[in-house]
Design a protein around this nucleic acid. Structure first.
Length: 838
DNA sequence: GCAAGGTC
């Protein structure tokens, strides 16, 4: 046997560093091999991978979409190829002279597969060294030491289960994606994708939209009365018992609602006939897993994607534990008291943490899901100093800290008081109810302010007591269609359906946005999405059904138990997919037409006022959007669109022009532009407001600056001699601009004031427009990239590497070109950043 | 270039 060093392989660098630290008792030293961290001590080396470092794909000859019939992918070989060359090379180099190899990847199915991939890479260069597998549920001293003292073997069956998933996902996803894209002739960046996870997720959204479309709203009425005891007034609601003897508040017949209203309006007293007091315990929440973290973050207005991105940054910096976890049970070795003690030094929450230390006994809550790979998300005992985090990072970090505090805090206690009072009616008594609640012991709410603690006051009354009826109110209402899924609700539903994983669900939603399947927030499906779901339902129902995952899960478990083998499972899946293609091939044309119609519907604004053909949303070569006639070049009619954001069409149609309203999506700066023709006409009619002499041509040519409304809906201060003089300054789109008395000495211009229709909104005195713009530019120049929502330290680094140094540079960049240069960033993201920078 | 799953 060789006498070289032992090699430990982990799933990620972070785990490698911590394991090396534990096994070496802190003596490990960090080194770089091929740009990859390697930790060395004694006769040992430890390297962290980056998840999968090899990927599955078809052989290169299947690469050209147009040359290969999609159905050929069903029977094509699937190969493994390194995807992280530098890590693979480093692993090979270290493995060559290793005397023994320990696979220490995560303790789950995917970890077993990643371990097997490492094993195969090792075997390519070292046939002799023994390879074992160490398994531990959390990276703690005790567990790691025990695992290395008693190593096990790789579980090749479990890894094969993961491989079956890889192969099946690739063959279904790639073949159907190519088929749909080819049939609709969408081959560029705008290909049409389907897959085992994105399919059912999209169908969920489309199905909800179908319910909304099919919904017929119904009128109903609700009745309220103000009841007064002494001088204390509270509101009670009319109710009755329905046919099933259940309490009902909605009255479905107008005549009856009016009759009840008349009786209540005429009544002067109501008699209390029921008083019920109840004390309710409100238990503190369970520890955070990924899904619940995303849900809580969405409650404070962070999108799923953004919340996860911040959590990952906090994890990398060492302030919170691994954010991708299903686990809602803290590991045994977590010491709440020690952690509270550490947190009590922190800003914002230190006092709350310290208060919790006063308790005699600290028992954390536990959720239903207990897994072994990672603990629930909680803060570490390493605290950031105020300047270490951006404001957004602080907000999210505080959420994680406070969730931990909540899980070790006491339950809250509410006192509920239900009062029912009766008013004499013509044939029967009318009953009114009020539900009071009071937070008598705030418990965990004292440290976790993210849940509502709104109280409803109902005075202390006794049965038989007479209350004054001081007001009656009839409210006409309509039943509402079901609500669209929000992002966090979607993720929870995906989790319930068993599709996707903690690490991918939020990415899947992002993918649906990127593919043009959903828009806005809460996401609504495009026509294309409906077209894809309809086509899938007809020909490949599996790919939009959660059953596919359920079935795959069963097959994987069979493989893992050694009761089925990989080929059996993948061959069976192949046969099913072959049959799907038998039917698809016959309908290629019709399906392609349908998808193309859907694509066009997403872009069709309405009839062209000049030739009657369709007006569609198009993009100029510079990347900006405009409305142009589909009859181009015969008809050259166009309308401009605002320069910020990405346009989508709303359902509302302009009564005058028959054009759909346009909404511009730009993150927090999203706004409704409305009918583009109305906007253009309004701009033509709005008179320019002359401000004063143009600084460029005023002296020589008498040019004047004026506030002008643009046909795109925007506004600027520009020279009246445009286009001969192109001097201009930006102006906000909204509000009414007026001149004020005082004049700027430097520029000879009056100050400008913007007033708003909303009377609550303070007017904005921006002063001399030139001075104002200068100040604005100065502020921008001093603004760091990180100040923009969605840009963290890492993204800022990537931006700088791409040549974007500051906010001004970001604003000047072409979104598509910049997106190409930065991994994991799409064009829309860049547009959102730019909109935020304005 | 296609999926979904790791990780960054």
């Amino acid at each position: 046997m060789k006498r070289g060093p032992e090699l430990i392989v982990t799933e990620k660098d972070n785990a490698a560093r911590r394991i090396a630290d534990i096994l070496s008792d802190g003596s490990a030293e960090s080194d770089r091999v091929n740009g990859v961290n390697v930790y060395k001590w004694g006769g040992k080396r430890c390297i962290g991978l980056s998840g999968h470092v090899v990927g599955v794909d078809f052989p290169p000859e299947y690469g050209d979409w147009r040359d290969v019939e999609p159905v050929e992918l069903v029977s094509a070989d699937v190969e493994k190829r390194p995807t992280q060359e530098n890590i693979v090379a480093a692993l090979r180099r270290l493995a060559r002279d290793a005397s023994r190899i320990h696979i220490a990847t995560d303790y789950d199915r995917e970890g077993e597969l990643i371990g097997k991939e490492a094993y195969e890479l090792v075997r390519e260069v070292n046939e002799a060294a023994p390879v074992d597998r160490v398994r531990f549920s959390s990276i703690t001293d005790r567990e790691v030491q025990e695992a290395f003292a008693d190593p096990d073997d790789l579980d090749f069956d479990l890894a094969a289960a993961g491989e079956a998933r890889q192969i099946i996902d690739l063959m279904w996803g790639a073949s159907l994606t190519r088929f749909l894209s080819l049939s609709a002739r969408q081959l560029g960046d705008d290909f049409i994708s389907v897959g085992r996870v994105q399919g059912p997720t999209l169908k969920l959204i489309v199905d909800r939209e179908r319910e909304i479309d099919a919904f017929d709203s119904e009128d109903y009425w609700e009745l309220f009365a103000a009841l007064t005891k002494d001088s204390e007034t509270f509101e009670a609601q009319y109710f009755y018992l329905d046919a099933d003897d259940n309490e009902a508040e909605r009255v479905w017949e107008e005549a009856r609602a009016d009759a009840v209203d008349r009786t209540l309006s005429a009544a002067s007293t109501a008699t209390v006939d029921e008083v019920r007091r109840r004390t309710r315990t409100d238990d503190p929440p369970a520890p955070f897993n990924t899904t619940q973290f995303i849900r809580a973050a969405s409650g404070i207005d962070y999108s799923a994607q953004r919340a996860m991105s911040i959590a990952e940054d906090l994890y990398t910096a060492g302030y919170v534990t691994y954010p991708r976890t299903d686990n809602t049970v803290y590991p045994e070795d977590l010491e709440p008291r020690a952690l509270l003690d550490a947190l009590s030094d922190g800003p914002r929450f230190g006092d709350d943490a310290a208060d919790l230390l006063d308790a005699d006994e600290i028992t954390p809550t536990a959720g239903d899901e207990e897994t072994t790979d990672h603990p629930p998300i909680h803060p570490t005992d390493e605290l950031p100093s105020p300047s270490d985090l951006s404001e957004d990072e602080w907000v999210v970090y505080e959420l994680v800290v406070r969730r931990f505090l909540a899980t070790v805090a006491d339950a809250a206690t509410w006192e509920h008081l239900r009062v029912v009072a009766a008013v004499d009616g013509d044939d029967e008594d009318l009953r009114l109810k009020a539900n009071g609640k009071r937070l008598v012991d705030p418990g965990y709410h004292a440290v976790y302010p993210y849940r509502s603690t709104t109280e409803n006051y109902v005075p202390d009354v006794a049965e038989g007591e007479e209350l004054a009826v001081t007001e009656a109110r009839l409210e006409a209402k309509q039943t509402q269609p079901p609500r669209r899924y929000g992002q966090s609700r979607l993720i929870e539903t995906m989790e319930d359906m068993g599709i996707g994983t903690k690490a991918t669900r939020h990415d899947v939603i992002q993918k649906l946005y990127d593919r043009g399947y959903i828009e806005g927030d809460p996401p609504r499906p495009t026509r294309l999405a409906r077209g894809v779901v309809e086509a899938s339902e007809e020909f490949a129902d599996r790919i939009v059904s959660e059953e596919m995952t359920a079935r795959l899960e069963e097959d994987m478990q069979a493989i893992a138990r050694g009761e089925a083998d990989l080929d059996e499972v993948t061959d069976e899946s192949r046969e099913i997919l072959e049959r799907v293609f038998d039917r698809l091939e016959d309908s290629r044309e019709a399906l392609g037409d349908h998808l193309r119609e859907s694509l066009k519907a997403d872009k069709t604004v309405g009839p062209c006022p000049e030739c009657g053909a369709d007006l569609v949303i198009r993009r100029s070569r510079g990347g900006s959007y405009f409305v142009g006639c589909d009859g181009y070049p015969d008809c050259e009619y166009t309308l401009p669109l605002p320069s910020t954001g990405k346009p989508i069409l709303l359902d509302d149609v302009c009564g005058e022009h028959g054009l759909h309203d346009v909404k511009m999506l730009a993150g927090r700066k999203t706004f409704v532009h409305g009918c583009p023709l109305c906007a253009a006409e309004a701009a033509d009619e709005e008179p320019d407001l002359i401000v004063g002499p143009c600084p460029e041509c005023g002296a020589d040519h008498d040019g004047e600056l004026a506030v002008k409304r643009l046909r795109s809906g925007g506004r600027l201060v520009g020279c009246t001699r445009y286009p001969d003089c192109e001097y201009s300054l930006p102006m906000p789109r909204r509000g009414e601009v007026e001149r004020v008395e005082e004049t700027c000495e430097e520029h000879g211009l009056p100050g400008l004031r913007i007033t708003y229709e909303d009377a609550d909104r303070e007017p904005w005195d921006l002063g001399c427009p030139i001075c104002n713009y200068r100040e604005y530019q100065a502020r921008q120049a001093g603004t760091e990239l990180e100040a923009i929502d969605g840009i963290g330290e890492k993204t800022a680094e990537k931006l700088k590497a791409a040549g974007v140094e500051d906010v001004a540079g970001l604003k000047a960049a072409e979104p598509d070109a910049l997106a190409d240069e930065i991994d994991g960033v799409g064009e829309d993201t860049v547009r959102n950043w730019q909109a935020d920078a304005d």
